[in-house]
């Protein structure tokens, strides 16, 4: 394991001086490295980065997101993906090339207020994100409950190789679907959903703490003991 030095930082704070590589949320001025966000700074031989604790969701191609249909036109749906921009889902990508514009058929597929699980297939600095729902598991979300967390904390909720999410799923008998944009869908028994919501909120509020996985495990097992 590489030696990693960590500290809490706020924007503008000097993290380190020397010959490092800067990765994310860091600016370099000569040989000084400054944080650009509130977060946890990591200094290792691999470089310097800040894991932010707050911030907007910036889409990346191939991200899986949960979005809400908020509007539609003749050719596409407009989707709120909890980001700076609305995303678009083109009618052609859903109905195929032969599609001819028709309000009825658009609304029959997805109506306003529907949640969808979708993939970002295109996004750059010049245009709004484009979504696709072709792929296994993608499309309209028929049931379940939604909980929202700061998009900056999604990686923590997933955990190393999905360890955190697996821990919560097995203790609550819920299936969790995580949108990279901070929206999480829970499907399962009502008491499981309630417990999963609490666990997810706990991950969010304690994302910066040492021993988070252990804390979550003990929270979940305490609940199980009380039940049995």
């Amino acid at each position: 394991m590489p030696e990693v030095e960590r500290k809490y930082v706020t924007p503008g704070e000097l993290i380190a001086e020397g010959n490092y590589k800067s990765t994310s949320n860091v600016i370099r001025i000569r040989n000084k490295f400054y944080a650009t966000k509130v977060g946890l700074a990591e200094i290792s031989h691999e470089g310097i980065r800040v894991i932010p604790l707050t911030g907007p969701y910036i889409p990346r191609v191939d991200d899986l997101v949960i979005g809400k249909i908020v509007d539609f036109s003749a050719f596409s749906w407009e989707v709120d993906i909890n980001s700076c921009f609305f995303a678009y889902l083109s009618a052609q990508s859903v109905f195929g090339k032969e599609f001819s514009p028709d309000r009825e058929s658009l609304l029959k597929k997805f109506s306003i207020g529907d949640l969808i699980y979708a993939k970002v297939v295109a996004y750059d600095r010049t245009r709004n994100p484009l979504l696709s729902v072709s792929g296994p598991g993608l499309g309209r979300i028929p049931k379940g409950e939604v909980v929202r967390i700061s998009p900056a904390k999604v990686p923590r909720l997933i955990g190393k190789k999905g360890s955190m999410i697996k821990t919560i799923e097995s203790a609550t008998n819920c299936k969790l679907i995580i949108g990279q944009n901070g929206i999480i869908l829970m499907v399962g028994p009502p008491d499981g959903i309630l417990l999963a919501t609490q666990a997810i909120k706990m991950v969010e509020s304690e994302a910066h703490l040492a021993g988070l996985t252990k804390n979550i495990q003990s929270f979940l097992s305490k609940y199980k003991e009380e039940q049995s």
């Binding site: 924007p11 503008g12 400054y34 509130v38 932010p52 707050t54 907007p56 700061s150 900056a152």
Partner: peptide, 11 residues
């Protein structure tokens, strides 16, 4: 602005 997580060179 820092609370919103906007990237900042400094406070």
């Amino acid at each position: 602005l820092a609370d919103a997580g906007i990237s900042m060179r400094d406070m």
